[in-house]
Design a protein around this nucleic acid. Structure first.
Lengths: 117, 117
DNA sequence: GCGCGATACTTCGTCTGTCAAGGTATCTCA
DNA sequence: TGAGATACCTTGACAGACGAAGTATCGCGC
């Protein structure tokens, strides 16, 4: 919806891992949760979501299993692995660092002495 | 150098515009300024920089002219245009929004009532 | 009983930004 | 003479995002 898609690029995997920290979930639900959490300011596109799932599973960060839905559309649930939890923690740290970097790079303070040390 | 490159992806143009808000500059200088400002935690790659310049100029956000260096390597200076200033202002707003979105999406607060309003 | 919308997953092909690698040219200093 | 800094540019490949299209089931209204 918003123009923000470009800026959220690269965070897809972390966002998914964040959703899986609390409980196992599945694509459609994560998709809706993200939209709801951002009040429809942002939404994952399906193709983006599912390709991220594939990457995360290939890397051992999440594991999948079919829900036992004998009625309704079948759901593929994902669970975060210990490796995934570790990766998520690192992602949070990376994000904090990136945030600070970008903030400082977008600041247009005067060119004089930045007197950093 | 750092792992942050993925996360800064998409901000290249804004970073360049920020550098040009204060004064005209040229590729090599912007590159060094970015590295210095982040204490070498992040640096623009040359190819990335110059392709961003091309895009920004094509879009009318910056204008270029050759420095009058009769000695030394010639420099192509870039100046931000009014359109570029406007675009930069919007970028700052977008970044603030994206930052808030990502922060909220990476938070793994309990699933109960988010009691947003 | 039929169509429609919601749920739910998947694949294909394209686009865009990044970047490794390589190239050109000038100046300074040893 | 040549190494290193300054300064710019191009090519080709890659990875992530995503539009579009397809499959399948369920519940509801008519």
């Amino acid at each position: 919806m918003s123009l923000t898609s470009d800026l959220v690029r690269g965070h897809t995997e972390s966002i998914i891992l964040a959703r899986l920290m609390g409980k196992d979930s599945y694509g459609y639900e994560i998709n809706k949760a993200v939209a709801a959490k951002t009040r429809n300011q942002y939404e994952l596109k399906e193709a983006t979501l599912y390709s991220a799932f594939r990457r995360l599973e290939a890397g051992g960060y999440i594991a999948s299993y079919w829900g036992d839905a004998e009625q309704g559309a079948r759901r593929r649930y994902y669970a975060i692995t210990p490796l995934g939890r570790q990766c998520f923690a690192e992602s949070l740290a990376d994000w904090a660092q990136a945030k600070a970097l970008i903030d400082s790079l977008l600041a247009q303070e005067d060119p004089q002495d930045p007197h950093l040390q």
